[in-house]
Design a protein around this nucleic acid. Structure first.
Lengths: 352, 352
DNA sequence: CTTTAGCACTCTCTATCCGAGAGTGCTAAT
DNA sequence: ATTAGCACTCTCGGATAGAGAGTGCTAAAG
């Protein structure tokens, strides 16, 4: 693609801004009058024609103003949208909320989703932090009834897995507690594979439980991400591109179905490093269901220890500046939390 | 309200059925021809006029067919809709799925939501089972970094509460483990109040932790319900009453906001006993946001031990027969699970 | 007293048409 | 390279008209 002249870039940027704001095609005359460009509408029209030919703009119909194409948005985001940051007062507000919510990890995740939804004004997704490899921390066995046993497995970072087991025979609670304690001693700090290897050294109930523990841990290892929390579902129902119920429905379905999000998040985790924000505009040809949608996504956490993903899903016509900075900021806060929780080191960052 | 004649009831039932099916006003002529009533359209019209006067039917405009009013739906559900049950093969299918999902409680809750959404074809809500009173089962303290400590508190029934604490000073993991073990010994099987009373007997770290444990347990006591899981959000976007984006939005917002659901569920838990299904049609004047919506709700679990709620939210024009039976059946399965998990006694019911 | 045939009336829904308005592309002049 | 002028295209809103569906009423019949 040939480089654009400065004036062309200005015009593209103005059109993107205006279109994001008003959701209506932008005309040459309006542009000149509004922004006091020192040229005539005809000149702007010529530039627009060039930009249209370059595939950055398009017309909904012959005689309407221009709107950005997906490529236009991409050019805008990559080249014209400078580094933005959330205003200091918003940052302070968010940081304050996160301070208030000290406590359960799940609450942090929900708070992150809620903050993102509110500040980006589109729908948000946050996955709970997920350890790179499950590391055994503690096991608890609780007798419930007959040969039903509730297994509570605590992994590094405080991830808890619960499972209801049906054992071959009945055991006393005291016996179960002893078993759990013995296994905890032996397996502390070990990975799923190492726990599986421990089976050799035990027999009977111990071995049986160890096997179950190892299999649960392997399942956790295999998971791409932790629990997913959503917020702001209703935000994009107000946007004009979803006035048609069907388009709203497909977008919402994507959002509801875990499988799709898993895929996107996995993809993002592969190609994105912690600290950078990735913007996927219009599905990039990959996902055709995302036709009018964009995704702004970031990875958070500590690589090698535990990571998660968070981001937003909204119409392509979205306020990228604000959204990107919100995602980046919240990802930073969540990273601090993960490092704190998973016994690493690092600046908490919460204290401004 | 005067009692309706048999013929009036027939006509009301037919109109409700047909309207639920087709979402279009029902006319007298069509009714007579379709169902081979042995009377003329004029007769049916007379009866319709009576039913309209009684407030059970209404006309969208002067010259359209009739549609049921909310009162009409209520009469239909209460008096005309006989006891229905899910077809045996559907029951078997569901029961089979529940069998497959043995394991974590959360998975059961999610499965229940998914099954309800699929079988009722509207949006579903399921709350996790919530113990009547939190009973201490086990405590774990995990050192993370500096004076940050992760507290994992296991309550009766396998409910797990995690909390990140900031302690006054730093402790070794071994010290924390000992403390946790000591507290576990002392608090096993106790309620929040009893745990709080234990504080007297300890001092220093032990007392500090005990206080935190008690406060978390009290918070759990105060909660009306456990986690809420939703499914089938997109189901009702297809319905014609939500063709207007705004109405879809208000309904969806209700569904997304936890506060509202909490209120409804709390209300339902108060007035409904386990085993019965409650139908709220059109908000009953209470909640005006529910104008075109109905709720079918049931309580499940074991009163005095642990209970939860599950149900669906959909357009007033919903297939009540199928929905009510689905809700009732799933509530039964979940009750069995709760009784099993919370160490009670009772028939598992899963084995057909 | 109940039922029914007949009929005028009302209201929605769809298609069609028309004019206003907005914006473009092209051409020729600056 | 820029711009004024102009013809052309397309959408959008409102008005109009006819078809269709269904009712309520009246008067007659059972």
């Amino acid at each position: 693609m040939e480089a654009l002249s400065e004036r062309q870039e200005t015009i593209l940027a103005l059109i993107v801004h205006r279109y994001i704001d008003a959701a209506q095609p932008v005309g040459s005359r309006w542009l000149v009058e509004q922004y006091h460009l020192g040229v005539s509408p005809a000149t702007v029209r010529n530039e627009m024609a060039t930009l249209t030919e370059a595939g950055l703009l398009r017309q909904p119909h012959t005689s309407a103003g221009r709107i950005p194409t997906e490529q236009g948005y991409r050019y805008f985001v990559r080249r014209l949208l400078g580094e933005t940051e959330l205003p200091a007062d918003e940052r302070r507000l968010i940081s304050h909320q996160f301070h208030q919510a000290r406590g359960a990890i799940n609450e942090w995740v929900q708070l992150a989703a809620s903050v993102l939804a509110r500040h980006s004004r589109v729908a948000s997704v946050v996955t709970a932090p997920h350890a790179e490899r499950a590391i055994f921390k503690h096991l608890e066995l609780i007798n419930t009834r007959g040969n039903q046993v509730l297994m509570v497995l605590v992994l590094l970072g405080g991830v808890v897995q619960q499972e209801l087991l049906s054992l071959a025979s009945t055991f006393e609670q005291s016996e179960l507690s002893q078993t759990a304690q013995k296994i905890t001693m032996a397996a502390m700090g070990k990975s799923s594979r190492e726990v599986a290897a421990l089976v050799e050294e035990f027999k009977g109930l111990h071995a049986e439980i160890l096997l179950l523990v190892a299999s649960v841990m392997m399942r956790v290892d295999g998971l791409a991400a932790g629990d997913i929390v959503r917020d702001g579902l209703t935000n994009f129902l107000g946007e004009p591109e979803f006035a048609d119920v069907n388009s709203a429905r497909t977008a919402l379905r994507l959002f509801e179905e875990r499988g799709f999000l898993d895929e996107v998040v996995a993809e993002a985790l592969d190609t994105t490093s912690v600290g950078t924000v990735q913007v996927v505009i219009g599905g990039e040809g990959y996902w055709k269901e995302l036709e009018n949608c964009s995704i702004v996504l970031a990875r958070y956490g500590a690589p090698g220890l535990a990571t998660g993903a968070l981001g937003v899903l909204g119409p392509t016509r979205m306020a990228y500046g604000r959204t990107i900075s919100a995602v980046r900021y919240v990802a930073g806060l969540m990273s601090d939390l993960v490092i704190e929780t998973f016994a690493g080191q690092g600046n908490s960052g919460l204290t401004q």
